[in-house]
Structure formats: structure tokens, C-alpha cells
Design a protein around this nucleic acid. Structure first.
Length: 154
DNA sequence: GCCAACGTTGGC
DNA sequence: GCCAACGTTGGC
């Protein structure tokens, strides 16, 4: 099983939005970065675990856990001229953008803030923490995953 | 709001 | 293929 971290701005789509969704499931539309897309298209598999990360907000950090419930399929928001994610270069025949569907497994009682993660030596290997990193989807190692899970509620 | 870092675009 | 200009991300 692979582990991941996916960012979302909570004023656009928060963990509470996912919790309210039918079956607590939604598709992860709107990724418009090739490397992040490739992770979803080529590497994310059923059952992979994902940290839900809130970015560009008062307290950025990890807010819960999701799993992949549907592997890559075309991101149709790219075809919708009324969508903020519209991309005229994507077509139905040759989709440029792909996404996975995710289901909420757990919303943490308390967010694990980025500023805490930054101060934990065993987590300095995280791609998320690499200087200059802006990727909205990053891989997480099994070791990093287990360590972060152990921080819950502390 | 600032700004550093990074990705994309497009002329040549 | 180079690279300058521009746009975006995202913490602070």
C-alpha cells in the first residue's frame, strides 16, 4: 500500500465538505500540475491511504485520513467552460487531466499543524517539508505515516 | 499583502 | 532548445 498527502484550501474544499458528501466520498478534481497528475494517474491504487492537508489558511496542517476508492479517471471539470478548472487543451477524446476518488476514513479531533511537523526530526524527510515544495500531492513513506498517526490527539 | 520558489508559456 | 516574462502556490 502507498501513502500520500493531498493539499486543499479549506475555503475551496475542506475535510468537513468531504465528511458531508454522500458516502463521505468525492473526486479530487482540479489538479492542474503534471507531476501531481502523474501520481494520481500512474501510482495511486485502490486502498492507498492519504493525509488530508489544509493549505493557505490560518493553521495549515494535516486534518485527517482518506483512502482511494476509485483509481484514475478523467477530470471532467477541464471540459467545462464554466469551471474554474477549465482547460481548453483538454478534450473528451484525449483528456489531459485525471483524478482519483477518495473516501474519508477519519477526521482528526485536532489538526496536526505544519509548524509542529517542522519541529519533529524524524519527519524532516517528508517531501512536504522540502524547501520550496509546492506540490499539491506528495508521497509519504510508511515510516513517516506511522509517526504522524502516533501524533494524533497529542 | 509580501515574496520566494517554482512551473508554464511563447518568441526566437 | 533556450530563456525571459509571467502566473501560481502557499507560508508567514
Amino acid at each position: 500500500m502507498n501513502y500520500w498527502l493531498m493539499k486543499s484550501e479549506p475555503h475551496t474544499f475542506s475535510i468537513d465538505d468531504l465528511q458531508r458528501a454522500p458516502q463521505q466520498t468525492d473526486h479530487w478534481e482540479g489538479v492542474r500540475n503534471y507531476q501531481a497528475r502523474n501520481y494520481m494517474r500512474d501510482q495511486m491504487k485502490m486502498g492507498d491511504r492519504i493525509f488530508f492537508y489544509h493549505s493557505s489558511c490560518e493553521t495549515p496542517g494535516i486534518t485527517g485520513v482518506m483512502e482511494v476508492v476509485k483509481e484514475c479517471h478523467p477530470d471532467l471539470s477541464a471540459l467545462d467552460p464554466n469551471s474554474p478548472y477549465f482547460d481548453p487543451k483538454s478534450t473528451k477524446a484525449i483528456p489531459r487531466w485525471w483524478m482519483v476518488s477518495v473516501r474519508l476514513i477519519e477526521k482528526f479531533n485536532d489538526i496536526i499543524p505544519l509548524r509542529i511537523l517542522k519541529n519533529i526530526p524524524p519527519l524532516q524527510t517528508m517531501v512536504l517539508l522540502k524547501p520550496g515544495n509546492r506540490l499539491s500531492i506528495t508521497p509519504v513513506s510508511a515510516t513517516e505515516w506511522a509517526f504522524i498517526i502516533s501524533l494524533k490527539g497529542t
